[in-house]
Nucleic acid binder design. Sequence first.
DNA 1: AAGCGCTAGCTTTTT
DNA 2: GCTAGCGCTT
Length: 782
Amino acid sequence: MEENYLDKLNEPQRLAVEATEGPVMVIAGAGSGKTRVLTYRIAHLLNKGVDAFNILSLTFTNKAAREMKERIGYVVGESNAKSLWMGTFHSVFARILRVEAPLLGYPSDFTIYDQQDAVSVMTKIINEMNLDKDIYKAKQVLGRISQFKNNLITVRAYHNNQALIEADNEAMKPRMGDIYRAYVDRCFKSGAMDFDDLLLRTNEILTRFPEVLAKYQERFKYIMVDEYQDTNHSQYLIVKALASRYENLCVVGDDAQSIYAFRGANIRNILSFKQDYPDAKLYPLEQNYRSTQMIVEAANQIIKQNQDQLEKNVWTANESGEKIAIYRGLSDADEARFIASQIWERQISEHLQPKDFAILYRTNAQSRALEEALRKRGIQYRVFGGTSFYQRKEIKDMVAYMRLLINQNDEEALLRTINYPARGIGQTTISKLLVAADQHQISLFSLVENIAMYAPTIGINAGTTTKLNNYALMIKRFQVMLKSHDVYEVTMEMAKTTQLLNALKEDSTPEGVSRLENVQELLNSIQGYVEEQQQLEDGDASLSGFLENIALATDADNEEEDDNKVNLMTVHLAKGLEFPIVFIAGLEENLFPSMMSVNTRAELEEERRLFYVALTRAEKVAYMTYSVSRFRWGKIIDCEPSRFLEEIDDDFLDWKNLNIPVRNSNNSGLSADLFGDEPSAESYKQREKSVARPNPNQRPSGNVQPRPNFKPVNQTSSSSAGSQENALGLKVGQVVVHDRFGRGVVRDLQGEPNDMKAIIHFDNAGEKKLLLNFAKLKIIRS
DNA sequence: AAGCGCTAGCTTTTT
DNA sequence: GCTAGCGCTT
């Protein structure tokens, strides 16, 4: 055991570690050693004789939990660290729900529906209710329901809430309440919970069953929550309930790094901790150990421009470091080429390894160009997130079979597998089955299982009855097999019997080969999982254990061995990580900040915090790049530098190439002086600043420079002279032409000047709402 | 019932 | 540039 771990902490860190009793809030600036505090705090608790069994630590990713456990193991010995409860909210409470969910009528082997499953259920519901799928968009509706759930508004509560009902009526969605009810019913009947349910149902149990609450309050005498600024209301209530007995609650976070408001995170949870717990001790950690002075100070300057924040002063004793390099690309490919070349050069000149580099971006779609450039250079890289392994069709197919074995009420899994690989059970049959199951109020599987009994009344012929029967028998055979064989053996057998592997083997296209490889990888990972769990004393080598693992695996979690590769990921995924050299790519208006987030100050401030998070990932060197044009939606569009670049003082910046486009001065779009002399950074900035930009989101006071007129260069550089005037000068009643929808009349204009939408009635396409910044409109008659 | 080809809409970010 | 969903053909 490590003896002197307290000596490894600075004063505020040590105080936070030693304050084990009562509520504690650690406000940890970027790079200030927050993980170190959490780790040593737990080690300290264990050292003081607290049973690991009584400690609950909620982390942001499962990977963070694993790493922390490992580090604690170094300090206090592995065996002691083993029984700690550590993980994400979702995984910890899923585990608790395996035990407690039957109280609410769920099976303990409930399925966890991911986003895709949820969308698929929702699409069916909207369809069955005969609603217009353009008004009731499955994803949007689910987003709304997610809001309800995260604020503990149950179906009943919704129907008693006039304000919500009215809001949905206003939004032209009067059936929202019915859809909500149908969705919840459907999930319940399928024995399934979505991500939000894991938290909502936990809350429900803790509220409705005081003895269960008491059990976990006694169990979790010490609670720690990392990234507290990103907890939503539902999570907040769980923590509050569990901690209310002993109040040994330590939350760690940084309001400046709150970047998940879009999924319900409530920054007020951290801002009002002191009101919730008046006796709380506060420990601000302000010394940054991660980054150079240049990076720390530039980051400070960025975040200062947000109104909503706790005062703090992050500083560092590290070296002053290089200025932030800025590069302006001519295209996304050029931007990517520059990044790849810098990585190449730095690797050689500074003896760095690929894994020392990270390229961060706002949207997953940006990875494509970057990947290509890295490939051309022969640089090894790794993309996190995006379409993850478990979202691939071939994997979901395989997993659907596995899910069905565990929970035969899982309707999504049944529908996915019943005719894949094809066994002659088509849409017509499935529709009949769905109707009949509903009529008889039985699950789809029990209907299929007893199809011989029902077939005549449903109108299913003998041939199809046999097929259905065989399918049910096959599933049941695997279920039986699961009792005597391990998960890997059963899955392997299943892959063979269903012809799933063979179907893939026949496909010799590159995509087909890669699909087969993926399935083989899944089988390998099952084997690995089984072996690993069998070695553990309290291992869970069950199929449901494996399924839970993959349903709740985060994109940051999956880690390959020996991955000395350049890291590509969204800024969101980079939270909590650090790299010697960081590139922030795509710093353009409408991309970073995102087009969807520039309408309110709150949204814009979240984007700015995101930018802050991105920059503070860097230890030694940060690059920021943007491009004047970019492939988006299959087209080349013109881009403007991000307003965030303007917000950084020139003292921190090193403009790498200054061949700056002519902008706002004539109608030539790009080109012009691309190959001409490079103007200085000064003249560039002056030129941009000389044009005042009406920005409704701008803080009225403060030392921020007036925002240059960046925005509405029209997407179509072809739309020639004064496209901006056209866009903004559009009037109701004008006749316009759109290159896809044809001729139409402007009916209405809505929104901010910079984000104007037009309702246009097209002769042939009907009424459409178009974003003027993007719509390709030509006015033909005023 | 299955397979193919076309089109509409699309991306913010994720447990 | 991609993919989900639709309609047409076999």
